[in-house]
Amino acid sequence: MKCPICGKDLDLQNKQIGTSENGDPIFNEYAICHSCKKQWNLDKQRAKKIAAKKAAEEKAKAEAEARAAEEKAKAEAEARAAEEKAKAEAAARAAEEKAKAEAAARAAEEKRAARREAKARARKEAIARLAADKGISEEEAERILKERARARKAAAQKAATDATATDNSEEQKYGNIPAEEIRDKREKAVRKGYEDMLATDPDSKVAKKKKKEEAETAKAKEDVKSRKMDDYDDEKSSDDEDDDEYEYVDEYPRFRPGRIILGIISLLAFGFCIYKGFVTGLSTSGADVTSAPGMNYVIVALCMLVTALLYFIMNNRDTLFAFLIPMIVYIGSAVFAFLKHGDEFELLILAGVSGVLAVISLILAIASRGGDDYDDEDDYDDPFEEEHDN
């Protein structure tokens, strides 16, 4: 720390400035400049800075609270103003609608009063004309008009009653006709009986037409039968010429139990290899992980799992690849286990087992393709032999 006056280094010392209530001394840190003979109480300056900082923070906090209160009051005032404005607008709309409704009601009432006045005026004029024409009093003319009105009303009611009665009579008049479905069924029955009656007459056109149709049907059946026989003869002659190329296809896959057994053996070998791999260990201290004995067991286990899945998936297929592909995988696992067995005797045994399974797969593949041709032609039954003899 430098002296603010001469720029020389200051000497920092703790000096006692007093004692506490318990009699303990109180020390403050002083910065002393021996050149200028000046000293500064650093703790007092720090306390002043802290107090000033605290006062500034309190002042800022008070200002922030004042601004928040002012903004809150302003927002509340705006909300109240908006609410009052909405209420005033709603009241104005309600008053306007009420005024419109009252005006419409007054207009309707005025219109009804005008119609009543026009009707009363027309009635008075009618009574006056009738009284003048008949030479009677207005009371007598009013009575006559009332009787005429009652008569017109009674005539209208009678006309409506007669129209209803007419509709009911028409419905009853046509109510005995059966439904359309029943009429169609009866019509078909009558037509069929008439055709049957005509068919019993040998000289009728219907009987001749029926006989002609039966003859054409029989002729068509004979043509179809003869055409089938010709096709069979052609097929048989072509089979005799190409007898060496004829191959009997069996729809049922061969050696299905053997495939299942080989798949189960492969699954057992897969489980044994996985167990040995995890027991032996899958990693070594070197960088080459594939050189670990446990990893060799895992690779052989994967080969066994692939062969088992192939046998189970291709169990219903009568194809040569159902045996050849697992055989190739067996050979690959056997070669790998033989090359990587080292000091592991179990890997050598697995190589031998894989080789044996490969040989069995090869034997089954060869056997599945053999014995498919017919050597004795007399065992083949001719499906149309009886028809030829006849």
Score class of each variant (00 low, 15 high):
P4A: 03
G7E: 08
K8D: 14
D9E: 01
D11L: 09
K15P: 00
N22Q: 09
G23S: 00
D24I: 05
Y30W: 14
Y30D: 06
C36R: 01
A47N: 15
K48H: 09
K54D: 15
E57T: 08
A60H: 11
E63T: 04
E63D: 12
E65V: 01
E65P: 00
E70V: 00
E76P: 13
A77F: 06
E83H: 01
E83L: 00
E83P: 01
A92W: 03
A92Q: 03
A95T: 00
A101V: 01
A104S: 07
A104R: 04
E110W: 02
R112G: 04
A113D: 05
R115Q: 14
A118K: 00
R123I: 08
K124N: 11
K124A: 12
E125R: 08
E125W: 08
I127G: 07
A128S: 14
A132C: 07
E139I: 09
E139A: 10
E142Q: 06
R148H: 12
R150Y: 06
A151H: 05
A151E: 15
K153V: 07
A163D: 09
T166A: 15
G175M: 10
I182P: 01
R186A: 15
V190H: 08
R191V: 14
K192L: 05
M197K: 11
A199S: 07
K205V: 02
A207L: 00
K210M: 15
K211P: 01
K212R: 14
T217V: 06
A220I: 01
V224T: 12
D239Q: 10
D240P: 04
D242C: 11
D250K: 01
R254S: 06
I260P: 04
I260F: 05
I261R: 05
G263I: 15
I265T: 09
L267K: 06
F270E: 15
F270Q: 10
G271V: 02
F278T: 15
V289T: 08
N296P: 01
C303Q: 10
C303A: 06
V306L: 08
L310W: 03
N315M: 09
N316S: 12
D318F: 10
T319N: 02
A322D: 05
A322S: 15
A322G: 10
I328R: 09
V329T: 00
L348N: 02
I349Y: 01
S354K: 03
V359N: 02
L362K: 03
L364K: 00
S368H: 03
R369Y: 12
G370C: 12
D373A: 15
D376R: 09
D378W: 14
Y380S: 04
F384L: 11
E387K: 07
H388D: 04
